[in-house]
Design a protein around this nucleic acid. Structure first.
Length: 226
DNA sequence: GCGACAG
DNA sequence: ATCTTGTCGC
């Protein structure tokens, strides 16, 4: 797929936060988003012992059968230290490289992390959405931002993720009976209901969506070899 | 001042 | 994220 070239990159947390605030207005929210995506891509990154080297992987699934239709992986170096709230600056450059290797242009991108459920409402999923122009959503394994009640114990149970003003920034979703819930939030050009529906569809058997699971496996394998 | 803090 | 032993369950 076509991906815009990346230009200047922040060299300090202050610059990074300023960039998030500058890109934030480019977010397109409110639209329902893809209801029957033909292809859905999952992205994930694994790190080497040192924490510097990394491998970014993308796996494209058929939106109906969930079968893998294409995949790509590339190694790289962390572009920023890990700072909560600035996580995207760490892996975004390598994620853009791996997306360029795709023949397919996915109808939806599923990120391993937050979207709007972020201190400045601009997590990795939002950033990747603005840079690619594609619909994106985030599915995180733990909470970064927002308060919430405990969702019911059955698959499909939810609880809203709220900011201090009571605004909904995401949803805590139980993807399997009795497992820890995941944190779903919108990235770009999709709404929260649709994002949660896709998360459940992508998680027919395990806690995490197949997109994330397969991208995780692929990125680890690439790191092991290289 | 003391926690909390995607991966 | 990654480092790790044993343990529980299909």
């Amino acid at each position: 797929m076509e991906v815009q070239e990346l230009h200047a990159w922040p060299s300090s947390p202050e610059e990074a936060k300023a960039l998030q605030d500058r890109l934030r207005p480019s977010l397109e929210l409110g639209d329902p988003g893809p209801q029957r995506p033909a292809t859905i891509a999952g992205l994930d990154v694994s790190y080497a012992d040192d924490g510097g080297r990394l491998a970014a992987a993308v796996v494209v699934l058929d939106g109906v059968t969930l079968e893998t239709v294409e995949e790509a992986v590339v190694t790289g170096v962390a572009a920023f230290p890990y700072v909560p709230g600035l996580f995207a600056f760490r892996e975004l450059p390598t994620l853009l490289v791996v997306l360029r290797r795709l023949d397919t242009t996915p109808d939806l991108l599923v990120c391993d992390g937050a979207g709007l459920a972020h201190p400045r409402r601009f997590g990795l999923a939002c950033h990747l959405g603005v840079l690619t122009g594609l619909p994106t959503m985030g599915v995180a394994k733990t909470r970064l931002f927002g308060k919430h009640d405990e969702p019911g114990s059955r698959r499909g149970a939810t609880a809203d993720l709220l900011d201090d003003g009571g605004e909904v920034v995401g949803r805590v979703l139980r993807t399997q009976d009795g497992v820890k819930p995941v944190y779903v939030s919108v990235g770009h050009r999709i709404d929260l209901d649709t994002a949660c529906r896709h998360t459940l569809t992508l998680s027919p058997e395990f806690r995490l969506p197949e997109t994330t699971r397969r991208a995780d496996r692929l990125s680890r394998a690439a790191l092991r070899d290289a």
